[in-house]
Design a protein around this nucleic acid. Structure first.
Lengths: 338, 338
DNA sequence: CTGAAAGCGCTTACAG
DNA sequence: CTGAAAGCGCTTACAG
């Protein structure tokens, strides 16, 4: 634990025999900066020998820039969001940024804002925890800080980075229709989540367009327990659907467990398809057919869009062009006696 | 997106009618600093009215302090580590710190180090990705940066924050012994992980101490696929064990799926107990009995220990005193014909 | 093409 | 008890 202080810019300047301003110029070198080639090389050599790295705080203080991004997520334990987060972080690193993470449990929001934004620690924020009417929006709306909404979009903000939710819902319906189903159910998340609303609506529209009756719809929180309640209600329904579309991993996991408990055989008695994919779906009681969304691409693009804003470009809504993919597993088949 | 600049210390000083140095004094107020009460109040009032927050960069530059911690983890997608990470982050926030996250995929390590440590962005590092002989250790050892090793410890470093691994292995064995088992198998992780080695060894010792033959041991990476290979080997063994202890969630998941595929009934033909707990274990084909480790406490304590180091205290090894807990599910029972 | 100076927003001895 | 000054390590007009 020696305390050898890290080299400063003066140190490389001295070693190269130039003034610190010159050293700064070549190191931050806009290529057109008029510095003699020989001088330039001396400075680079000195920096390399000293393993010089500019102090981020000093540079930041001078340039009003931190090369740090904030990432506000609802829960790190959601594997789908974790995929997004790691892609976002990786992309940020590529572009020279570092990312600080804040879990937005709805309580810490205000303090996170103070600590990160008001203290000037970040250049921009990836908000992946917005719900309609949620508390973040109050902060974010009046902030003069570049930000984007990721996945959980904020309709009308003009800063949304979203995926093809409607296509996801449509593809789920088409998959089940193609298998011959005509009676559908769906479990959606709370109405405050616009992305969910869009895919659920598309599922419904596609079913209706095929001439089948509207899917019966149940609302559940994004928890296994809540989905389990919805599943019980579905199993108890008079006109039991032959196929169900659920809106989250947690829904699928709760649904399968409840079906097994209730003695409902999947897919023989009921087919199940899940929005969001995860390797874990291979290992639940019945491997669940799913819709894989391009989460990594979402994270990368959102980060790029945020940095564009930081660089002065106007914010805009972005939809990831990549289509969802159906990952067929064992939970979907033709209806019996269909 | 207005660009109203945030209030600076001068702004509150001016509004309070004092010099900025006085304002600084009361705001950072060591309570014993000699400032008139009335002055003190004026400054606090002005700060409150302006919603003043000190600029972190400026303060950091002056004090050589960032109130930022780095967290190096192997994969954000590991739910057990995610629990640790969120607890660590939460504790850091409580103590006035912010945490930047870096996934240590073994490639980015060096760049992460440059970006975070050499550029002076962090005051300390939580290293949760160390393996024996791994590349981090080279950086960390010669660094003059406070750091602790979390869970994946670095024996001999004197900076380890670890859990009661030996008790975990012992309790797993005792659970199975109490059910009447005498023929054991175990799947461990790669030898580079000391914590795993400790619990696996304790499992073995406990079995031996009970007078039973040594468990047959298989090594697997921390992936479902690798565990699946080990499971196949176990199922094919001449003297098939009646009970198996596996060292990770991914092991359990791969094991159960492979057993189902091979037609091995759990727990009737073979009992299974898993180190690490997760709600997901309720939802795999057969709910898996597990050993729950105090991950949140680990994260909190590690963060506290790191900040102690930053505050100048000498580093030391810490063992979380909390005992593991057995979470009984369906995968363990008495051996048939035992 | 290169150097000298000012200043980013703070904190902290040092005077008074 | 409070103010004036220096300085943390950079970058960036401004001179020369």
């Amino acid at each position: 634990m020696s305390t050898k202080p890290p080299p400063r810019l003066v140190d490389v300047a001295t070693r190269a025999g130039v003034h610190v301003s010159t050293a700064s110029r070549v190191l931050n070198g806009s290529v057109d900066s008029k510095v003699r080639d020989e001088t330039r090389q001396r400075v680079h050599a000195a920096a390399a020998e000293l393993k010089y790295r500019p102090n981020a705080l000093a540079r930041g203080l001078k340039t009003s820039t931190t090369t740090t991004l904030g990432l506000l997520v609802r829960s790190l334990s959601n594997p789908v969001m974790a995929d997004m987060a790691r892609a976002a972080a990786a992309r940020a690193w590529e572009l020279g940024y570092v990312v600080v993470i804040a879990e937005d449990d709805g309580v810490i929001t205000e303090r996170a804002w103070e600590r990160l934004v008001d203290e000037g620690r970040i250049d921009g924020m990836l908000v992946a925890s917005a719900s309609i009417g949620g508390p973040i929006l109050d902060f974010v709306d009046q902030a003069s800080l570049p930000h984007v909404f990721v996945d959980h979009v904020h309709p009308g903000s003009g800063r949304n980075v979203a995926m093809r939710e409607a296509d996801a819902g449509r593809m789920a319906a088409e998959h089940l229709l193609a298998l011959g189903h005509h009676h559908f159910g769906q479990i959606t998340g709370p109405p405050a989540f616009d992305s969910d609303r869009r895919r659920s609506e598309a599922f419904r529209e596609t079913v209706l367009a095929a001439g089948d009756p509207a899917p019966v719809r149940w609302v559940a929180d994004y928890t296994e327990a809540s989905a389990s309640e919805a599943a019980k209600a579905i199993f108890a329904a008079k006109h039991r659907p032959t196929a169900v579309f659920v809106s989250a991993l947690s829904h699928a996991i709760g649904f399968v467990a409840t079906a097994q408990h209730a003695g409902i055989r999947i897919p023989d008695e009921m087919s199940l398809i899940c929005y969001d994919d995860d390797p874990l779906l291979d290992y639940v009681g019945v491997p669940v057919t799913s819709i894989r969304m391009p989460m990594a691409e979402l994270g990368r693009v959102a980060t790029g869009a945020l940095i564009d804003q930081i660089d002065g470009k106007a914010p805009r809504d972005i939809e990831i062009p990549t289509l969802p993919i159906i990952v067929p597993r064992s939970s979907t088949t033709a209806p019996t006696g269909g």
